[in-house]
Design a protein around this nucleic acid. Structure first.
Lengths: 341, 341
DNA sequence: TTGTATGCGTTATCAT
DNA sequence: ATGATAACGCATACAA
């Protein structure tokens, strides 16, 4: 691949003429422009974006930091991010922390050294982001966004599912089906109670239903989680719940398995519902009714937000939203039905 | 973040002294070195990698091209790639083609313009890579590798599952369980017959089993695939197969559903096995016995190979392997059992 | 309309 | 041991 100077030599002009011709500068000879563009194509010339970035300071690079790259939800977020970045002519640099805090700091450093203009962070939920990382990012004046995180990180904008809408969708659907005793099952790590739990509770009370049916456990979502135990705890309530909402599909799928191990037919004896509409949802037996959170859309909006802030005239204005919410939708399959009377 | 010159001004030395101090140049004053390094830390100085790349030509950038970023298998490949890249100090630029050929060409262009030193491609299987893309990559002297692709693309190294080992694992396990009539179900798009089909056939004959039980369909894997029809075709063979291997977990999971719709108990009436050990495998009922292909390892090896070629003294040698194979392993769950006699 | 000169943030090669 | 200068590939202000 030639440099701009070599191409200029080939064309018998100066390199600045080539530069202008390729950028469709208005004040350039029509013939020259055509000739140079043809030559550029012939030799597969591509301007060196590294050099462009070094010169202008605008790298047109965005950084993606993931706690765990192999998560299907994260992969779909990345897809949305890439889609928006691609549309705006930005490139995405990918990074993983393996759920370790020191690695997160290092990822921030690395991306800063690459002069990314924005960062999109999918941290491990709901562990707080190290303060130092946040400070470093904002001190370097990089537009950063936190995706799919249930915990606010003060100056950073967060892009998430609209948890309130999700709860209304889930509770509303089951309520309309005739359920009056609805349990919610999810993790509650440390002192932190997820937004989702709170949203479900509100949705229940809004419909005049009891919100006593909350089952949680004091570890991370899947660590030491026992579907059998959890199911037993949920069904121990009186009156017995006729429907259970799992805070995520993997929990719900495990509950289905646990129910069937107890010879409880789903959805006849108990309805079970998931959240996230992961790829597993269509393969459980029965297929799992779930709430689609549209991770691609979350990624897309997050990325658009970052890019908008990059191109905004004055980013100092305090008009950056703290939270952008993406509405979820209901995906009806076969794991929920009217309760047996 | 300061530039090297600003830092030099702060330290009251020249920028070249700073550069040397940070790179631990042997001929630098111990005191000066310490002082400058402390200052660099204090001001969070990070050398601009764009400028470094522009100067040296070594961008330390790798490009990842995926046909579909949202695929769980691809996400795990990416994880392995990142792991190896991270270990060697390379960054990964991510790109997606949305399964469209023109976008693939464009992705190659873009990555070339970013001066990536290597490319890792997960193309849509088994569609051939456009010749033009391959030529462009090699003409720019970039080390490229094709991942998880069942079709050879001449000068490019391919990193894949060891299909022969996979077939032996699958057939061997079922055979040892007592099965004598084993069907294989998979797509065969156009004139292309997957390596997997061929490998299974060989494994069957190697064990003295009939390889007549092959069911395929003339479209892409999941496009227009009907589990019910496919299952009926498989079970129409005489003698009736007692076990079915699906070429991938999603196929196998759909077959389980289809079998149960026909009131055929799995694994009592028929054993069903998958490949890839996707996350869905643990949530089917019964949980799916499958073959783990270790996509992280595939990604890791592919990336290591690329980096090795980058740092090799002479990449012109014809000793680049055409194919690197990663051994799969068997994951036993509950969808396979001894055949009913 | 086109060419020349300067600068971006580095590293490397001269000096001193 | 340290400083001045050149160079990387590109864009652009200014000169012609």
């Amino acid at each position: 691949m030639p440099t701009i100077r070599q191409l200029a030599a080939l064309a018998g002009v100066s390199h600045s003429t080539v530069s202008r011709a390729l950028r469709d500068d208005p004040q350039i000879g029509e013939a020259t422009r055509r000739r140079i563009q043809a030559l550029a194509r012939e030799y597969h010339y591509q301007p060196n974006r590294l050099a462009q970035g070094a010169l202008s300071g605008a790298s047109r690079l965005l950084g993606f930091i993931s706690g765990d790259l192999s998560l299907p939800f994260g992969a779909r977020l990345l897809r949305g991010i890439y889609d928006a970045a691609y549309g705006a002519g930005y490139q995405v640099l990918v990074t993983e922390t393996w759920r370790e805090m020191p690695r997160l700091l290092q990822a921030v450093h690395t991306l800063l050294a690459q002069r990314v203009q924005g960062m999109l962070i999918v941290h491990i939920n709901p562990i707080p982001l190290p303060r130092q990382a946040v400070l470093e990012i904002i001190s370097h004046n990089v537009a950063a966004v936190l995706l799919d995180h249930s915990r606010a990180e003060r100056p950073l904008t967060r892009v998430c599912t609209d948890e309130s809408a999700l709860a209304d969708l889930a509770v509303g659907y089951l309520h309309d089906l005739g359920h009056r005793h609805i349990a919610f099952v999810g993790p509650s790590i440390g002192a932190f109670r997820g937004e989702r739990t709170a949203a479900i509770r509100q949705a229940l009370t809004r419909r005049g239903l009891s919100s006593q049916y909350l089952v949680d456990w004091q570890t991370e979502a899947y660590h030491g989680f026992s579907a059998a135990t959890t199911l037993a705890r949920a069904l121990a309530h009186r009156p017995c719940p006729t429907a259970i909402i799992g805070f995520e599909d993997r929990i719900a799928a495990a509950l289905i398995q646990a129910a069937q191990a107890r010879r409880l037919s789903v959805p006849r004896a108990v309805s079970i519902m998931g959240c996230a509409n992961l790829n597993i949802a269509e393969f459980t037996a029965p297929p799992l009714t779930s709430i689609e959170q549209h991770p691609e859309e979350i990624g897309r909006r997050a990325c658009r937000h970052v890019i908008a802030r990059l191109t905004a005239p004055d980013p100092a204005g305090g008009d950056v939203p703290a939270l952008i919410q993406v509405p979820p939708t209901l995906v009806i399959r076969d794991s929920c039905a009217a309760p047996a009377r």
